[in-house]
């Protein structure tokens, strides 16, 4: 394992994650448009919306019932997870290279991300 190979694997992983996320968002979006195409839209006022689209549990529940907006949020969650997976992969890579300093640096970044995501959702 060297830096070049590690970066290649990470790049590939990110691309796959993004394409998968985009496919789910596209499917959810198609569902949404089929069901709601002639709804009136107005996003002038900010209304935080229901818990079903703002918490991890709510989103999973909503998507499991094949609600279009829940499906889109699942895709977006997957998208948010791709850079997190990237940091985790880099940490493993650095550990395999026996690079202790950067294993710890990656771990710190991973903990900050985990703290933010878990605290919020």
């Amino acid at each position: 394992m060297n830096d070049r190979r590690l970066e290649n694997i990470i790049g590939r992983l990110l691309q796959t994650g993004v394409l998968l996320a985009a496919a789910i968002v596209l499917a959810g979006g198609a569902f949404y448009l089929i069901q709601h195409h002639s709804d009136r839209t107005d996003y002038r006022a900010f209304v935080p919306g229901s818990q079903d689209l703002r918490t991890l549990r709510g989103i999973v529940r909503s998507a499991a019932h094949f609600h279009s907006e829940g499906l889109i949020q699942i895709g977006l969650l997957l998208l948010i997870a791709t850079p997190v997976a990237r940091v985790a992969m880099a940490m493993v890579g650095f550990a395999l290279e026996r690079d202790r300093l950067y294993t710890v640096v990656s771990l710190i970044v991973l903990l900050i991300l985990a703290f933010s995501l878990v605290r919020a959702t």
Binding site: P48, G49, I72, I80
Partner: peptide
């Protein structure tokens, strides 16, 4: 991407990320 992921959870829970 990593930077944005750090604020994405907070955005989501505040309702900034509207799927529509």
């Amino acid at each position: 991407g990593v930077t944005a992921a750090a604020s994405a959870g907070i955005y989501l829970s505040r309702g900034f990320i509207d799927p529509r």
